[in-house]
Design a protein around this nucleic acid. Structure first.
Length: 269
DNA sequence: TTGTGTTTTATTGCCTCC
DNA sequence: GGAGGCAATAAAACACAA
C-alpha cells in the first residue's frame, strides 16, 4: 500500500478520515498524488445525452476518488431540493439509501446546492433592483426637468407682476424672497434647500447627501449605486428566517417601495 | 494536445442552536 | 458539547478555444 494513500468515509464529518500519514498536509499531499497517478483515466467528453448515462464510466471509478454523481442521482436530488431545500436527518438517510450514496454526500450536495441557489438569487435580485433604480432615476430626471420649466415660468410671471417703479428698501435687496412672497415661491425655496442640503431630501437619489447608513452591508458597489445603500441595507438574509423558499433577498425593500407614492418626496410643482 | 476557465464535489473552520 | 449550517477554499472533472 502506498504511504501517501488515504482512505476516507464520506459519511463522516471532518476529522474522521483515516490517514496513512498524519495531519492535513499529508491529506492534501495524498490527494495530489492520486491526481498525478490517475489523470490518464479521465472521463471522456460526453458528446451526447446518452453518453451521460454510460454506466461503465461510473462503475470504473475507484471508490476513494472524487466522482461525479450520475445524472439520475442529480435529477432526484434536484427534485428533492425543489420540494424542500433543507434536509432533515430522516430525509437525508432515505435519499442516501435511494441513491446509493453516503448520507454525508447527500448533505454536502444540498449544502452546495443552497450556495448555488443563493448566488443565482443574488443575481436575480441585483437585476431587479437595478431596473427599479433605473426607473426611479429616469422618473426623477423628468420631474427635475418639469420643475425647472415651472420655475422659469414662475420667474417670468413674477417679473411681469413687478411695479413699474420699484421703490425698494436697501435691506430688502439681499433677500430674494421676502416674507410676503407668494406661497408658491416660499415652497420653492424650501424644496431647493432640501435638495441642496440633502438632510431632508431624498434618501434614495441624493447622490451628494450623506448616506443614511454606512454599515457596508450592501450587495451593491457604492460607486455604481451611491444612493441605494440605505435601501438595500434592510435586506433579510437567508438565515434570518427559516422560510426562504423562492423568496427574494430584497422583497422587503420592494414591498416598501411599492407602498410609497412614486417619488412622492420630490413632487412639489 | 494543452492551457485556461467553469462547474462540481468535498473539506475546513467558525458560528448558532438545542 | 454535538449537530448542522454557512463561507471560503481546494481539487477533480469537465468544456472549449487555439
Amino acid at each position: 500500500m502506498d504511504s501517501g494513500r488515504i482512505f476516507f468515509d464520506p459519511s463522516c464529518h471532518a476529522g474522521n478520515m483515516l490517514f496513512m500519514g498524519n495531519g492535513e498536509s499529508v491529506f492534501r499531499g495524498a490527494r495530489s498524488m492520486i491526481n498525478m497517478e490517475e489523470t490518464s483515466k479521465r472521463r471522456p467528453f460526453f458528446s451526447s445525452p446518452e453518453e451521460l448515462y454510460d454506466e461503465e464510466y461510473y462503475d470504473e471509478q475507484s471508490p476513494e476518488k472524487k466522482r461525479r454523481l450520475t445524472p439520475e442521482q442529480v435529477h432526484l436530488l434536484e427534485k428533492s431540493f425543489e420540494a424542500e431545500n433543507k434536509l432533515e436527518p430522516e430525509r437525508k438517510t432515505q435519499l442516501a439509501k435511494k441513491l446509493g450514496l453516503q448520507p454525508r454526500q447527500v448533505a454536502v450536495w444540498f449544502q452546495n446546492r443552497r450556495a448555488r441557489w443563493k448566488t443565482k438569487q443574488l443575481e436575480r435580485d441585483y437585476d431587479q433592483l437595478k431596473s427599479s433604480y433605473d426607473a426611479l432615476r429616469s422618473n426623477y430626471d423628468s420631474i427635475m426637468k418639469e420643475n425647472d420649466k415651472l420655475k422659469s415660468e414662475l420667474v417670468s410671471l413674477t417679473e411681469n407682476l413687478q411695479p413699474k417703479e420699484p421703490a425698494e428698501e436697501p435691506d430688502q435687496k439681499s433677500d430674494p424672497l421676502p416674507a410676503e412672497a407668494p406661497p408658491c415661491l416660499q415652497l420653492n425655496v424650501k424644496v431647493e434647500d432640501r435638495l441642496s442640503t440633502g438632510s431632508n431630501g431624498s434618501a434614495i437619489l441624493d447622490d451628494d447627501g450623506p448616506q443614511l447608513l454606512d454599515s457596508g452591508d450592501s450587495y451593491f458597489p457604492n460607486n455604481e449605486f451611491p444612493g441605494c445603500v440605505a435601501a438595500v441595507d434592510g435586506v433579510n438574509s437567508e438565515e434570518d428566517d427559516g422560510s426562504d423558499d423562492g423568496r427574494s433577498y430584497f422583497s422587503d425593500v420592494f414591498a416598501a417601495a411599492e407602498q410609497q407614492e412614486p417619488m412622492g418626496w420630490c413632487i412639489w410643482a
